[in-house]
Design a binder for these strands. Structure first.
Length: 458
RNA sequence: GGCGCCGUAGCAAAGUGGUAAUGCAGUGGACUGCAACUCCGCGAUCGUCGGUUCGAUUCCGACCGGCGCCUCCA
């Protein structure tokens, strides 16, 4: 069985062939840190984290880099408004991003490069591009000359004429050609800047990824990922820079792009005011619910986040954790999942919806099994789920953790349960039901069984 | 204008040239003092219209509807 991935460059699914089977390299575009991140930023993080886990199951050494963009005009603008240094602002939000990603059960990437820590690498790359006449200096700017590259536009599938036909191209006096993009731009005295051969300034947006990939992963990497909107111009320009700096070598063999997340049927936008921040959602839902929702759709399709979907996902997880809760004393057996339908689905361009459906089947199998079969079923369920970063929590905690609604403590709940048990022992069923209703009103559901009464928040 | 995507049961979401996984919700029953959990059962002919084919939801075309990108953007 082998991994197949859809390559945006060729618009087709292809068998994955690493450049070096001993060291697989993946780079994913991370956030620009000037605010808390929204759920749209979470999708690539979750998707490529899942791919990272999958790759790790196949190859001995997977190098996964996800950058932090900590110099950018949006950062400068926000920092100026708050009257603080950009590094203070960007550090704060980078930390917040890490917290949010951890809450979604994303593993830390192997490498987390920061743009501002790679200024020399960037200026070095610019110098090489200028020397090779792919870039030129003009009025303190350095621009990439897109006409100097034959294949420019290949990833996004458009010609230079097509691009300019859109007519939203910025016309600037320093551009020789309207489609040229900035590698370096001058900074005013009150703006952040670094010294360079072209004066004090700052790098263009696309350059950091090219420079950081080159430094940390090499001239050509196996997989490059990001959101669909990055195809143009970001990744197109990244390809242009890296490819031209490296005499035509491809920067990545496989380009992967996740689809967009909409909110209640509408695109997230400032004008609609419907940005859903991850940390806000985390106040209402466990991170695992957000993760489950993201993985319940194929990564390339558009996904519509809404309350119904989140609630449904929560109940779906409840169902499986419910099975796990009843088998909490069973030690999961170490099993080989290589021959499972679920693993095959993941290998098939990360078909997480199918893998999740298999999780539900595994859970039922586990529920019906006993003895060795039970231990194996549990092992299979947890192993496949682990590849997706799901179901790794303690089931007891899953059900007893606060769900935002009820403030009643576990101790108070236990006191009421004891009271109800006494009522039951006294055949006072009206009293017992009263306690049940009282707890239900506070979002606590009781489940009687031979072993006693369990409770959960629901 | 250019490039591209999507339309599958109430909701969500896979999939295949030979009449469609899975989850949530709903519903009938078993279990239960009552419940909950669990178990058994129940639902779609795949936007519309043509074409290719022995046969299409799956391939081709047209149309209808929804959407994305075209230098802020995951």
């Amino acid at each position: 069985m082998s991994l197949s991935l859809y390559n945006s460059m060729t618009c087709s699914k292809q068998p994955f062939q690493p450049i070096d089977s001993q060291r697989v390299t993946m780079y994913v575009c991370g956030p620009t840190v000037y605010n808390r991140v929204h759920i749209g930023n979470a999708r690539p993080a979750v998707v490529f984290d899942t791919l990272y886990r999958l790759l790790t199951s196949l190859y001995p050494n997977v190098q996964y880099a996800r950058n932090i963009t900590d110099i950018d005009d949006k950062i400068m603008k926000t920092a100026a408004e708050l009257g603080e240094d950009i590094s203070v602002l960007s550090t704060r939000y980078a930390e917040a991003y890490f917290d949010d990603m951890q809450a979604l059960n994303n593993l830390p990437p192997t490498i987390v490069p920061y743009a501002t820590q790679h200024i020399p690498e960037m200026t070095d790359m610019i110098s090489r591009l200028v020397a090779k006449e792919h870039a030129y200096e003009s009025e303190g700017h350095v621009l990439f000359a897109v006409q100097s590259m034959a294949d420019y536009g290949k990833l996004s599938g458009r010609s230079l004429d097509d691009m300019l036909a859109g007519a939203r191209v910025e016309v600037a006096s320093y551009k020789k050609y309207a489609g040229d993009f900035i590698l370096w731009k001058p900074s005013a005295d009150d703006e952040p800047g670094w010294d360079s051969p072209w004066g004090r300034g700052r790098p263009g947006w696309h350059l950091e990824c090219s420079a950081m990939i080159e430094k940390h992963l090499g001239e050509s990497i196996d997989i490059h990922g990001g959101g669909q909107d990055l195809i143009f111009p970001h990744h197109e320009n990244e390809i242009a820079q890296s490819c031209c700096a490296h005499d035509g070598k491809p920067v990545a063999n496989v380009w992967m792009h996740n689809g967009f997340i909409n909110i209640e049927g509408e695109k997230m936008s400032k004008s609609l005011g419907n940005f859903r921040m991850v940390n806000d959602l985390l106040e209402q839902y466990p991170g695992e619910v957000l993760r489950y929702v993201i993985l319940s759709a194929h990564y390339r399709s558009e996904q519509n986040f809404g309350k119904d979907l989140l609630d449904s996902a929560w109940r779906s997880l409840d169902a499986i954790y419910g099975f796990l809760r009843t088998q909490v004393g069973i030690e999961a057996a170490a099993v080989d999942i290589a021959d499972t339908h679920a693993y095959a689905a993941l290998l098939d361009d990360l078909n997480t919806p199918v893998a999740i459906s298999e999780l539900h089947k595994f859970a039922r199998e586990m529920n019906a099994a006993d003895g060795d079969a039970l231990a194996e079923a549990k092992g299979r369920l947890l192993a496949v789920a682990g590849l997706m970063g799901l179901l790794q929590q303690d089931p007891e905690q899953w059900f007893t953790h606060s769900r935002g609604g009820s403030d009643i403590s576990a101790e108070e709940i236990e006191v009421l349960i004891a009271k109800r048990n006494q009522a039951k022992a006294d055949k006072d069923y009206a009293g017992a039901d009263g306690v049940r209703e009282e707890l239900k009103a506070m979002g606590v559901v009781l489940e009687d069984s031979r072993e006693g009464t369990k409770w959960r928040r629901g």
